[in-house]
Simulated scan of single mutants.
Amino acid sequence: MISLKAQYALKAVLALARARPDEVLMTAEIAESQAIPKKFLEQILLDLKHQGVVVSRRGKTGGYMLRKSPDLITFGEILRIIEGPLAPLPCLSRSAYRRCEGCADEAACEIRRVFARVADANRRILDGTTIADCLAPGGQSESRNASLFG
């Protein structure tokens, strides 16, 4: 289950992606349109800024805009920025690997084998779905991801 913070981050990025490429959106504008508490949104946008997803402009006409094209931003990227590693077990993480407590042999671990399939499916969907996919007419990502399991 993803956190409310991650849901808000995705909603904010989607709102920024809907804006014109040169349009700057104020935090208050995003907060109101997406029903996100403004103070919470400010922290989320700072996290996204530090990771190079958004840029900010200061001043009276300041606000935020995407730094990268929506077709280059994946759900996986946003979730990793906000939530950290996506793997369900530490021994499956690509970015924060560590051996599970009490595990004598990863290669023989039945639990790891099952959750490795879960992690692979999650990565395939989350890293294969861009912000642009969600904004495409008819939700391009839905049909593409449905075929992964169909």
Rank of each mutant, 00 (worst) to 15 (best):
I2D: 00
K5I: 14
A6K: 03
A6V: 13
Q7P: 00
Y8S: 12
Y8C: 10
A9G: 11
L10R: 04
V13N: 09
L14Q: 11
A19E: 13
D22M: 12
M26A: 14
M26V: 10
E29L: 09
A31N: 12
E32I: 12
E32F: 10
S33L: 14
S33Q: 13
A35F: 10
A35P: 00
I36E: 00
K39N: 13
L41W: 06
Q43L: 15
L46I: 13
L46C: 02
L46D: 08
D47N: 10
D47C: 03
D47R: 07
L48M: 06
H50M: 13
Q51T: 08
V53D: 01
V55M: 07
Y64N: 00
Y64D: 00
M65W: 02
L66M: 09
E77T: 10
I78P: 06
L79S: 03
L79I: 08
R80V: 09
I82V: 15
G84Y: 13
L86I: 14
A87G: 01
A87Q: 03
A87T: 01
L89V: 02
L89A: 01
P90L: 00
C91L: 09
R94D: 06
R94I: 05
R94F: 04
A96G: 05
Y97M: 02
R99C: 08
C103M: 06
A107R: 14
A108L: 11
A108W: 02
C109T: 07
E110P: 03
V114Y: 07
R117L: 14
A119R: 05
D120C: 04
N122S: 13
N122M: 15
R123E: 14
I125K: 08
L126H: 06
L126E: 08
D127M: 05
G128K: 10
A132W: 07
A132M: 05
C134K: 02
C134L: 15
P137F: 12
E142V: 15
N145A: 13
S147V: 07
S147G: 02
F149Q: 07
F149G: 08
